[in-house]
Amino acid sequence: MGNSFGKLFKITTFGESHGQALGVIIEGCPAGLELDESKIIAEMQRRKPGQSKITTQRKEEDEIQIKSGVFEGKTTGTPIGIVINNSDQKSKDYSHISDKFRPSHADYTYFTKYGIRDYRGGGRSSARETAARVAAGAIAKQLLETKGISIQAFVSQVGDLKLEKHYGELDLAKAEENIIRCPDPETAAQMIDLIDGVRKDRDTIGGVVSCVIKNTPAGIGEPVFDRLHAELGKAMLGINAVKGFEYGSGFEGVKMRGSEHNDAFVQEGDAVKTKTNYSGGIQGGISNGEDIYFNVAFKPVATIMIDQESVNESGEAVTVSGKGRHDPCVVPRAVPIVEAMAALVIVDYILLAKSNKLQDF
């Protein structure tokens, strides 16, 4: 249970951080999509470890092997199987915590649930599992490209350091021009210095990834328990280290009055538009055609290179010492993960929308 996501465009991931491989099975991808494998590889490169001084130094090339569902460069409509081999495991880095519960990790909860523990990098609970999601999301993004839908995420906050400009004032493509993936160069430089300082202190820090989805057609979403924003929230909250999700005006909206917050409708040519977009492109759980935008909050990485108090499996007091290779801040590598999960949601809902109208059958 809990290893699959989606309804019509459905993924199931498998594998552990220090196992032989990770992988994903993708069901429901329409036949005939000309699949550009180089775009999948590019997304994997954005997520992979060892990119810069502010990410973990584990070296994984994250090369993909497409095992099924593609023939002569096109999807066949059958399940797509992708395998990503692990090549730089250092399981011995975790032998010292084989019976200890690391603070704020999933060690204790997994042990309580299953009665067995894979302590090698957290096993199935490791963020390494998200490599499989990014591979699947890269295919979903290519499907969305055929409809002109784009997804762009970026780092908007690290610790107390926040990007103050609205995304509409920025060239979001510039996020890929620096190692922190912030589209504002000045703020990016400050964020990098902050993370590097935290790394040198042998500590970690959290941050926020923002995401903008453009050109989603109006009418995407399902009532009542499958609202579009609820599914986006589930997708984001299912990412390792995520502590919060908000869309549109989010928590800032509580400071406004209805007369300020309401998005007035106007007719522009053949399209109905809104003067403002505090709704974040979603009303009543269904897209209205405006930009969908949201923020995802990530906690500080739980593994720190400072000794911490804890207990072992026998309940005895122990000291947990941080070892191994870990990110001082997860948000730079989380950007493609957020995009991937958003793409999986939007593709799934577009396919669901087709089943709602008799003329589409």
Results as ranks from 00 to 15, higher is better:
Gly253Thr: 07
Val209Asp: 02
Gly269Glu: 10
Gly258Val: 07
Gly244His: 12
Leu228Ser: 08
His261Leu: 14
Phe225Pro: 01
Thr274Tyr: 03
Ser210Thr: 07
Ile239Asn: 05
Lys200Glu: 14
Ile239Lys: 05
Leu237Asn: 13
Asn262Ala: 08
Asp196Ile: 02
Gly253Asp: 09
Ala235Asn: 07
Ala271Glu: 12
Pro217Gln: 04
Ala230Ser: 15
Lys275His: 02
Val266Trp: 08
Gly219Cys: 08
Asp263Gln: 04
Val209Ser: 04
Phe225Ala: 09
Leu232Trp: 02
Val208Pro: 04
Pro217Trp: 06
Gly206Ser: 04
Asn262Cys: 01
Ala241Ser: 14
Gly219Trp: 13
Asp270Trp: 00
Lys214Pro: 00
Asn262Ser: 06
Lys275Ala: 10
Pro217Ala: 00
Asn215Tyr: 01
Ile213Lys: 01
Arg227Gln: 14
Val198Phe: 03
Leu232Arg: 10
Gly207Phe: 11
Ser210Val: 05
Ser249Pro: 00
Glu231Phe: 01
Phe251Leu: 14
Glu260Val: 06
Val224Ile: 10
Val242Gly: 11
Ile205Ser: 00
Val209Trp: 05
Val212Glu: 09
Asp263Val: 03
Pro217Asp: 06
Gly221Tyr: 04
Gly248Pro: 01
Gly244Ala: 10
His229Asn: 15
Lys234Gly: 01
Ala235Glu: 06
Glu231Ser: 05
